[in-house]
Design a protein around this nucleic acid. Structure first.
Length: 422
RNA sequence: GGAGAGAUGGCUGAGUGGUCGAAAGCAACGCUUUGCUAAAGCGUCGUACCUCAAAAGGGUACCGAGGGUUCGAAUCCCUCUCUCUCCGCCA
């Protein structure tokens, strides 16, 4: 959530930001609810203060004495007033918070203002996005793909979008996980193995709830959510904690399967491995000092880009425009690889700075080195990387005329051959 | 799943109805003493919200969470969560 103080003091700034994001949230309602809540706080606090001072008088009186009983009689009315005030206060506070949660994060000043993805800027490209010649085909049409990934059995066992990876396919997927985790470790991220289900508080803290509830799988018995990305448990690792400034920046990475219902995307981009309900991903998360979170965003992006370079996959970097930014992000880069067989770009990483938006929801703060001032950290995350689409990239870009797949040097420590699909 | 015990500040741990946001110790921080270290003495030492232009100051809340009893709850009652011990089951 955004800072309520900012909204109170500078509503115009927030108004412009939400227009840029194309949000329809009602700032007047947010402010009115905040005002109503604060008025009630003042009123109830005063009542409670009165009750408290009466309490010390009561303590001095002899229990059961006439004065005592008279005082009790007098205080009953006050007690009832406090009680009803507290009920009202709780309602108003809940309402104010609920409305504040509907306000999206503010885009950073660097973010181009535009209503839709056509406003995204390509700020870097690497490698050659080559045309598909003779033997190049979408991965789902490659002979070796059918031996590596089994969709039909996935449908039988679970449902559409839950493929089996088999033999060399399973090994390639695992090699990618290993490679990403080792690279992450080398870049200073501590590896974490996370719970694959989270509670509602966690999903709320990172912003999946309340607006993306339909995109997550839920358990029937325990109302837990299957994680759509390890960002959720990872960012929540430090929920409701106060870190020491000296600890910052904290960097952690996690491998996990990710579960996404992808409701509403049926029939769109769903061929092959482009979009599935369960996929593996390594995620990078940072908790940083607010003063240098944008430098940290650049280094996060560089960490993700390095992986693509080592895998020799052509890619481009998009700076997302305001209208294509998510609810929680202040600035975001998407990394897209070139899928040569399909002749299209595939997003394999999204690197975002949330500034204090998540930290405020999640109660993640730090104590300044001197003076002990406490402030929210900035959180960032980026994929490093999503496995199935990188898998696709390797198949479609490293395909050789003989139909075999060349294994990039960087993966060979985990795959003992130079080619796959023979 | 069954039985029992418990949850208090960074940690340990007192507190069973009133002046308790909460003793004491440890840790931490500051100062003094000291050639250095050690030690000692003194002081500071939770978080959030509201009020205030801001600071100062003031107010309120918080003793696992939520509800209840009461003029008044860390303390009594109920529900839930979690932790520990024992039994059962199981990878």
């Amino acid at each position: 959530m955004i800072s309520i103080k900012l909204l109170r003091e500078n509503p115009e700034v927030v108004r412009q930001a939400i227009v840029a994001k194309g949000s329809d949230c009602d700032l007047e309602a947010v402010l009115a609810a905040d005002r109503a809540w604060r008025d009630e706080v003042v009123r109830v606090d005063a009542l409670r203060a009165k009750q408290k001072s009466a309490n010390t008088e009561m303590a001095a009186l002899k229990k059961g004495s006439p004065e005592f009983l008279e005082k009790v009689g007098q205080l009953k009315g006050l007690a009832a007033e406090v009680k009803s005030g507290e009920v009202r206060l709780k309602e108003l506070e809940a309402k104010a918070r609920e409305l504040l949660l509907t306000v999206p994060n503010l885009p950073h000043a660097d973010v181009p203002v535009a209503p839709d993805p056509t406003g995204n800027q390509t700020i870097a490209t690497w490698g050659e996005s080559l045309p598909a010649e003779g033997h190049h085909r979408p991965h789902w049409d490659l002979p070796c793909f059918g031996r590596m990934v089994d969709f039909a059995r996935g449908v039988k066992v679970t449902g559409a979008g839950f493929p089996f990876f088999v033999g060399e396919g399973a090994r390639l997927a695992r090699a990618l996980v290993q490679f990403f985790l080792e690279e992450g470790r080398a870049a200073g991220y501590e590896e974490v193995a996370v719970p694959l289900f989270v509670n509602a508080e966690s999903a709320l803290a990172t912003g999946q709830l309340p607006d993306k509830e339909g995109q997550m799988y839920q358990t029937v018995e325990d109302s837990l959510y299957a994680i759509p990305t390890s960002e959720v448990p990872l960012t929540n690792f430090h929920r409701d904690e106060i870190l020491e400034e000296a600890q910052l920046p904290v960097r952690r990475c996690a491998y996990s399967p990710c579960f996404r219902r992808e409701a509403g995307s049926y029939g769109k981009d769903v061929r092959g491995l482009n979009r599935v309900h369960q996929f593996d991903k390594v995620e990078l998360v940072k908790w940083v000092h607010p003063d240098n979170s944008y430098e940290e965003l650049e280094s996060l992006r560089a960490d993700a880009e390095r992986l693509l370079k080592k895998l020799e996959l052509p890619y481009r970097v998009l700076l997302m425009c305001s209208g294509d930014l998510g609810f929680t992000q202040a600035k975001k880069y998407d990394l897209e690889i070139w899928a040569r067989g399909q002749q299209r770009w595939l997003e394999v990483s999204s690197c975002s700075n949330f500034e204090a938006f998540q930290a405020r929801r999640a109660g993640i703060r730090f104590r300044a080195r001197d003076g002990g001032r406490i402030d929210h950290v900035h959180t960032l995350n980026g994929s490093g990387l999503a496995i199935p689409r990188v898998f696709v990239g390797i198949l479609e870009n490293h395909l050789q005329p003989d139909g075999r797949i060349r294994v990039p040097e960087a993966l060979r420590p985990w795959l003992d051959s130079e080619t796959l699909g023979g």
